[in-house]
Amino acid sequence: MSAVALTFFIIRLSGDPVRLMLPPEASEARVSEMREFLGFDRPMSVQFIDYLKGVMRGDLGKSLYFKQPALELFIDRLPATILLAAIAIVLAVVIGVSLGAMAACRKNGPVDYAVNAIVLAGQSMPVFWIGIMLIFAFSLRWHVFPSSGNERWLSIVLPAISLAAYPVAPIARTVRSSLLNALSENYIISARAQGFSETQIIFRHALKNAMLPVVTVIGLEFGSLLGGAVVTETVFSWPGVGRLVMTGVLNRDFPLVQTSVLMISLVYILVNFVTDLLYLYIDPRIRIDS
């Protein structure tokens, strides 16, 4: 709820949607007429209470820019973003866990350092830069993937890779450190004594026990993916909520931005709730009575 209140006031202090809706040469009289028409001439507290009443009724208002119910717009674009984020997180987990495991196996060796460098690079490159480089390489030079849009299944490849680049780093690092912890546990020593190969030890025994902190990180990163989607979707012209939010902010579309922030907060809470449930599944010690 505090996110809702914060958004409500911050966006109202940052510009005037009325002037953005009218042609620049519109007169002052026309501006105040439009402001009155939209109800923005009322005191902010009155507007806020009105807004809260609407939220209680499930009415989140109508987008000023698109002139459609804000919630409808958001829900319409949500599947595209969830699909993108889900594929990105799967990619990030596969790459991140492999890199982390490789690094842990060859601790302080050249592989470890190489992984560290890759991880660092992935985290420090801005998402939009990665995106544009991917477009230059894979669509302009080698013509493998389309540069933008959503017409073909192949269209999702580049945005998913560029969105995955950031969460790879924290996942790989967490896997590495928690795997190293696990590898020093007694049951690993006993597994070694029984003559299991190192690969078997890591994937059968250690990794499973090292997953708990990793799941936490993945849950948290999913939230940051939704943020990264704003940039990725703009670069690749992917029709999801990220671009919707961008359009909303640029046009000071109060109802649209408020709705988006509210809904994204809900998604974030939901993802973290699911993560918590996953603990129960992964770590039997957390289950209290069973």
């Binding site: 939009f128 477009i135 230059f136 669509s139 540069s147 933008s148 849009g149 670069v235």
Partner: peptide, 11 residues
């Protein structure tokens, strides 16, 4: 709609 200029030129 392709908001990013580099993407538009690539397309």
């Amino acid at each position: 709609a392709i908001p990013e200029a580099a993407t538009r030129v690539s397309a």
